[in-house]
């Protein structure tokens, strides 16, 4: 008891001196970033619950949920929403189906031209995206894929390839090879090893990648706009028309708040992955 007390007493001044020194730079950065990052979003949130907000009042004159009911009763919102969700689900499922086995192959197998092929996935960032989309649109025009569901699926599928390859590749590579060998040793064949050991071990990271792909597809605007117009109107595309036509300010605000929910979920689940250095490494640093 006494020993513990004395050791605490001696350890204390050192520890407290360290924690008490204020982190001025950090505080300043946090405040600046806070203003720049959070204020625009707060303004939108206020608009979503404002019924009357005339200049130059600092806050809305009347608050309420009237525009939520108004927005949610618009049929085009529901059509776009269900289309966006269907699109994102199909794209993410297809992407997982074709990319996860490929990622496993890149991580664990040996085959000709492996490095060149893997590099070409990472290098797909090396092209200006919208220029590429226009070039693809030129091809799709001849194929009759413009303004079709599957045309948009294809274009968005390409957009997910890179993330769905390299994050899972890193995840599979991080699985201890001895773990897989131990499973072989216990009598499991290669497919069983993949299913019972490699996949569950890599699952948290892969889940994050799948979630990021889903959210990324959900918000994908440029491909949907260029390839999908005018028939395929996803949520972001609808949002742009709302902004352009300036019909009712609150429609945009309500949609923004609604649209941000999936992103918030992604933020919760993937922050650790995104903050890790291995994530940034995928972009070539």
């Amino acid at each position: 008891m006494t020993i513990a007390e004395t050791s605490l007493a001696t350890a204390n001044p050192v520890a407290s001196r360290k924690t008490r020194r204020p982190d001025w730079i950090g505080g300043l950065l946090a405040v600046l970033l806070g203003i720049v990052v959070v204020v625009p979003l707060i303004v939108v949130a206020i608009w979503a619950f404002a019924e009357v907000w005339r200049y130059p009042s600092l806050l809305p004159q009347e608050w309420g949920l009237r525009f939520w009911t108004a927005t949610l009763s618009r049929p085009d919102v529901w059509t776009a929403m269900s289309l966006s969700i269907r699109l994102s689900l199909v794209v993410t499922a297809l992407s997982a189906l074709i990319c996860l086995p490929a990622a496993y192959a890149f991580a664990r197998m040996d085959f000709p031209a492996k490095n060149v092929l893997f590099l070409s996935f990472l290098a797909s960032h090396a092209f200006p995206k919208f220029g590429l989309l226009v070039a693809i649109a030129g091809i799709f025009l001849n194929l009759g894929l413009i303004s079709t569901f599957w045309g948009v699926v294809l274009i968005q599928l390409v957009g997910t390839l890179m993330m769905m390859i390299w994050i899972p590749v890193a995840a599979f590579q991080n699985v201890d090879r001895a773990m897989e060998e131990a499973a072989r040793d216990a009598g499991a064949g290669p497919i069983r090893v993949f299913w019972s050991v490699s996949l569950p071990q890599a699952a948290p990271t892969i889940f994050a990648a799948v979630l990021l792909s889903f959210v990324g597809t959900f918000y994908e605007t440029e491909g949907a706009w260029l390839i999908g117009a005018p028939e395929i109107r996803t949520m972001p595309v609808l949002m742009i028309t709302y902004i352009n036509n300036q019909i009712v300010v609150q429609y945009g605000a309500v949609l923004s708040v609604l649209l941000w929910i999936p992103s918030f979920v992604a933020l919760m689940f993937t922050r650790r992955l995104v903050g890790s250095s291995s994530f940034a490494k995928g972009f070539g640093v």
Binding site: P40, V44, Y219, T221, I240, I243, A253, S256, S263
Partner: peptide, 12 residues
């Protein structure tokens, strides 16, 4: 924050 929402927020 998706760019569409950002665009809208910046306008506001």
């Amino acid at each position: 924050v998706p760019s569409v929402i950002l665009a809208y927020a910046l306008i506001r």
